[in-house]
Simulated assay, not measured.
Amino acid sequence: MKENSLRYKEAGVDIDSGDRFVEKIKSLVRRASRPEVLGGIGAFSGLFQIDVRKYRCPVLVAGADGVGTKSRIAAILDKWNTIGIDLVAMSVNDILAQGAEPLFFLDYLSMGKLDSSRAEKVIKGIVEGCELAGCALLGGETAEMPGFYPEGECELAGFAVGVVEKDRIINGSKIKVGDKIIGIAGNGLHSNGYSMVRKVFGIDDDRSRARTILGSFIGDLGCSLGEELLKPTKIYVKSMLTVLERFKVNGIAHITGGGMKGNIPRILSDGCKAIVHRNRWQAPPIFEIVQRKGNVPDDEMFKVFNMGIGMALVVSSEEAEEIKSELVKKGEGASIIGEIVSGKKEIEII
């Protein structure tokens, strides 16, 4: 071997470190499993055997998402224990919106230099998210990409697959005039609108200044700004699967990027318009704080943020009260926030 021979580690990629990390998290990942999982992590792919006897005509439902620039807040504060929950929530709530039960989840974690302590905290959050959603963490990819990310930062992406009976797919086609809209409370900002929030509070590349801003206690929040911004996205799977077993739900909107303005119209059928009454629920204080400090118009707030409603259901007027009560029994904050009227496929917030 020549004296000046090059090793991959010298280029910034430590394969041995990556292998040790996989071994380290194997026992952790086993916590998020299901009986249908065949084998463990470390193979070229994950195996999941669907019990076809449980279904008449099963349809697989898949979704992919990330956490946006919320990961920048985690990086500034070096707090990584909840961002994995967000990652799972964004995808499992999306496939839940079509009536699907999440079966398994895969993650992609990339950073400039593998920091096993930080990565393990992220994986712990992902495992917790999978436990909350009742799905398996089937596998993933941890990539080391030197020179690609600023120091201390990473990128996250998640992929969820679920199953629903073909005749129970929820796509909004059965929404009709007279239906009611039930809003299920969120847990703050969830994982959308963080570029707006960082602009409003002046959280930029000056890490020291950003940490000071995020560390400031805000009385109306009862915590620091950073603690508020890192509250994990709520996972609605277990409470919603109970509702879907007992009741007919005509439409489900996961209120993510685009807010109510962008997401509720996506599920409306032709000739249906959504009317939402903003005085029927109490939005958490963070939204009013952002709006006031940033001088953000009402219309823009409802285009960017969930405004305290993480998921909206469209149900028949006859079952609306009973469904709301069932959600409350399951620990959700739920209110009847609107109704469907005749009109264009749009939403009006009054």
Results as ranks from 00 to 15, higher is better:
Pro146Phe: 01
Phe217Val: 05
Val122Leu: 10
Pro146Tyr: 06
Gly294Thr: 05
Leu77Tyr: 08
Ile15Trp: 00
Pro150Thr: 12
Val314Glu: 01
Asp299Ser: 14
Val290Pro: 10
Asp19Lys: 15
Ile126His: 03
Gly186Asn: 02
Met260Ser: 02
Ile252Leu: 05
Leu106Pro: 01
Ala100Leu: 04
Arg34Lys: 13
Gly251Arg: 06
Gly178Ser: 11
Glu227Cys: 03
Pro265Gln: 03
Thr242Lys: 15
Ser195Asn: 13
Val52Asn: 11
Glu318Phe: 14
Ser45Asp: 13
Ser116Gln: 10
Gly188Ile: 07
Val164Tyr: 01
Arg266Ser: 12
Leu6Met: 15
Glu322Thr: 04
Asp94Lys: 07
Asp51Met: 09
Met90Trp: 07
Leu96Gln: 01
Val161Tyr: 05
Gly226His: 01
Ala274Trp: 06
Glu348Cys: 06
Ala320Leu: 08
Lys166Asn: 04
Ser239His: 09
Phe217Met: 10
Lys261Gln: 14
Phe104Cys: 05
Ile309Leu: 12
Leu103Arg: 04
Leu109Cys: 07
Leu138Trp: 04
Gly222Asn: 00
Glu128Val: 08
Trp281Tyr: 07
Gly343Pro: 00
Ala312Lys: 11
Leu47Ser: 15
Ile255Val: 15
Gly134Ala: 12
Met301Pro: 03
Ala160Lys: 08
Ser316Arg: 06
Tyr8Cys: 14
Val92Phe: 08
Tyr194Asp: 03
Gly262Ile: 09
Ile175Cys: 03
Leu189Gln: 03
